[in-house]
């Protein structure tokens, strides 16, 4: 088992390194290592724009994928993901309110937009959890439907905020909502990592208990898992991760769905592989999707959310079609 994990993580680390190299090389202008030394314009482009963008892709991709894997285990539902459950929507609503109030506002040193997005995501996950759970059972159909409803409500509320706020904030919200990795400089990424790294570690530390929960709730309880506590902590960590991610990159869909399932298909069901594997592969996936978004059009670029949506939507439908394999649906 330990050997299997190490092998999986070694392979995925390699994939991530290759993706980073590709992400750093391609774009509106190709940058080679030689140019980096020779040309000060290329250097500025690389360090001010290209590198931060690749790093943001890494951070957001890793975050969305690990939360997807966790939510699937928590709800014992292969179709769960920050996007399908409305957690991203809730986060987006919280972030929009914060942006309308002023982008740079802070609360005790933490950017207000993080706090608001976390609150929105936490509210969404609590609502979905409350509605989908009847007694001891989480109803898979109700789970996804309540996710849809939460998304719709959040989208309507975001629209309302856009209408009520001044035009420049509204434009900012609109641009950010489409989901893109536009970023200048490394400071915003450092701020995110201060919150995200501890949350990632928290989820990884829970991965064995989450694995037992993914099998069955009663089983987990009789094997020594404190089910309520584990669920509450994992929900809060997911809401935190998704909130912070959404506030930086907008609602980028389906990464949390495609990536954990790919890791499952390659390396098996054990969450102790799926979660760290998703962290690595999610990072690689979003870096590559963004590289594609930057280069696919002859001029200009697509928002990365469009790429992940176009890839992820069909993947979702394919999983739905394959549901005979999953008895809980």
């Amino acid at each position: 088992m330990r050997g299997r994990v190490l092998k999986a993580l070694a392979i995925l680390t390699l994939v991530l390194l290759v993706s980073i190299a590709i992400g750093l090389a391609v774009g509106s202008q190709r940058i080679t290592p030689a140019q980096l030394f020779a040309d000060s314009f290329s250097r500025a482009l690389f360090f001010r724009l290209r590198l931060p963008r690749v790093l943001l892709g890494l951070v957001i991709g890793a975050s969305l994928a690990i939360s997807g894997g966790t939510l699937q285990a928590l709800f014992r539902n292969p179709l769960a993901d920050p996007f399908t459950l409305g957690v991203s929507g809730g986060g987006a609503l919280g972030a929009s309110i914060a942006i309308a109030l002023g982008w740079s506002a802070q609360l005790a040193g933490v950017p207000l937009v993080f706090v608001a997005a976390f609150a929105g995501a936490m509210l969404a996950v609590s609502v979905v959890r409350l509605i989908a759970r009847t007694g001891a059972v989480v109803m898979p159909g109700a789970l996804l439907l309540s996710g849809v409803a939460v998304n719709l409500i959040a989208a309507a509320a975001v629209l309302t905020v856009e209408y009520l706020t001044d035009p420049s904030s509204a434009l900012r919200i609109l641009r950010w909502l489409t989901g893109s990795l536009d970023v200048v400089g490394l400071t915003p990424i450092r701020n995110m990592l201060l919150v995200l790294v501890p949350a990632w570690i928290g989820l990884l530390a829970l991965s064995r208990q989450l694995n037992l929960l993914a099998i069955d709730e009663d089983t987990a309880a009789t094997l020594g898992v404190n089910v309520r506590r584990c669920e509450t902590i994992a929900h809060a960590l997911c809401a935190l991760i998704v909130g912070v991610t959404v506030s930086a990159g907008g609602a980028i869909g389906f990464v949390g769905l495609i990536v954990p399932h790919t890791v499952r298909m390659l390396f098996g069901e054990d969450l102790r592989i799926v979660l760290p594997g998703s962290l690595l592969l999610g990072a690689a996936f979003l870096i590559l999707a963004d590289a594609l978004a930057r280069t696919v059009l002859p001029s200009g670029e697509l928002p990365v959310g469009a790429i992940t949506g176009l890839l992820g939507g069909p993947a979702f439908l394919w999983l739905l079609r394959r549901r005979q394999q999953y008895s809980a649906l």
């Binding site: 694995n211 993914a214 009663d218 089983t219 094997l223 069901e269 054990d270 008895s327 809980a328």
Partner: peptide, 23 residues
């Protein structure tokens, strides 16, 4: 504890399931 019936949402192998008893 052995419940009346168990259904899993994910395709765990039998060995993975039995090994979970060692937790």
């Amino acid at each position: 504890y052995v419940p009346q019936s168990t259904a899993t949402a994910f395709p765990f192998t039998v060995m993975e399931l039995v090994l979970s008893g060692r937790t």
